[in-house]
Amino acid sequence: MTTARTRRAVLGAVGAGLTGGCLQSEQRSQTLTMGVIPDVDPDTAIEQNTELAAYLEFELDVSVDLRTTTDYAGLVQAMTAEQVDLGYFGGVSYILAHDRANAKPIVVGSKSGTTDWHSVFIAHESTTVTSMDDLKRSADSLDLAFGDPLSTSGTVMPTYYLRRRHDLFPDRAFKSLTHVGAHDAVVETVAGGNSDVGALNARIYDRLVETRSVDETVTEVWQTPGFADYPWAVNGSLNEGTVSGIRDAFASLDEKGKDAILDQQNVDKYVATDHEDFEELGDAVRMMELLNDDDG
């Protein structure tokens, strides 16, 4: 068993924020570089994955180098540059990593019997917006907050449903549109009155409500239909034996009673997945023209 040396590092752009360059092939059996998107603030993203990293170290008998990025595009770039072996992506950022780096999804989280995720629209009580009909009627007088531009549940799918179901183009229909980064930042922005309405990941919002981290001035307006999101994906250069070991380690978390880790991941268990499960996101990605965006 190698000595645990999980590091807390926030990565910037590839080549600037990453240290040590690409992993050499002979090092991959000894060190696993694990990257996670900053869907919450970077410190929290690391904290929520530290125990998981330690578990993988023990199960795989490797050292895990745990890192996060300054934004979602950073993790796509890191995977493309082969500076990340295992990544926790949003659905859209995974599709980009698959397109650019042949990233392969191996597991997704299941909660309450489903692997679907949802976006939730929220509003500040001062707006009197309580339904999507209200939101549509008042859009031109409302400031809208989204998450990271590549966030599946914080930007892409909310945009998809606004356009397809309500004929609202966020960048034109609202008084203003601001991207504030992490999902918890969306709640803080709306609660602070800096935006009238916002959209974020529904599971994260529900967790914030459960922990009483949501100001009473914020109300839920609507949850979208479900969609695939948040896969753990591996670099296409990893050998199948390593990939199989990682997949098995995730899948056995519930059998081994690792409830604390699963709770931190906001799932009940992990189940196997493949690229076909994410094909429905392709329509939204093409609609947003993200595959042609050189910045990720």
Rank of each mutant, 00 (worst) to 15 (best):
A78F: 08
K258E: 14
N292Q: 15
L291R: 13
E280I: 04
N102I: 00
Y160A: 07
V190A: 07
E57M: 02
Y230L: 11
E47G: 11
V156M: 09
F278A: 04
A182H: 03
N201W: 08
G154Q: 02
G198V: 06
G87T: 01
D283A: 13
V214P: 00
V14Q: 05
K256I: 03
T115Y: 06
E255Q: 15
L60T: 03
L144D: 00
T155V: 09
T273A: 04
Y94Q: 00
T31F: 06
T224M: 10
Q48H: 12
V180Q: 06
A251S: 13
F121D: 01
T114M: 05
D148W: 07
G236R: 01
D215N: 15
V209R: 15
D254S: 12
Q48R: 14
A103M: 05
K175D: 07
Q24H: 13
R212F: 10
R203C: 05
G257C: 11
G154W: 02
S119K: 09
L253K: 08
V218F: 14
E216A: 13
G109Q: 03
E59K: 15
R8V: 08
D171M: 04
D229E: 14
S195L: 04
V10A: 02
T217Q: 10
V107C: 07
Q264T: 06
V129E: 05
A54P: 01
V221D: 02
L177S: 08
D196P: 00
A139F: 04
G20S: 02
A81Y: 03
T69P: 04
G87D: 03
D39P: 00
G21D: 06
T273Q: 06
Y72I: 03
L162G: 10
S29C: 04
F174G: 03
S63A: 14
R5Y: 09
T33E: 02
A97G: 02
G17Y: 10
G15R: 09
T130R: 12
G236Y: 01
V234R: 03
Y230W: 08
V214D: 04
N292R: 13
P158Q: 09
D184G: 11
D39A: 08
A9R: 14
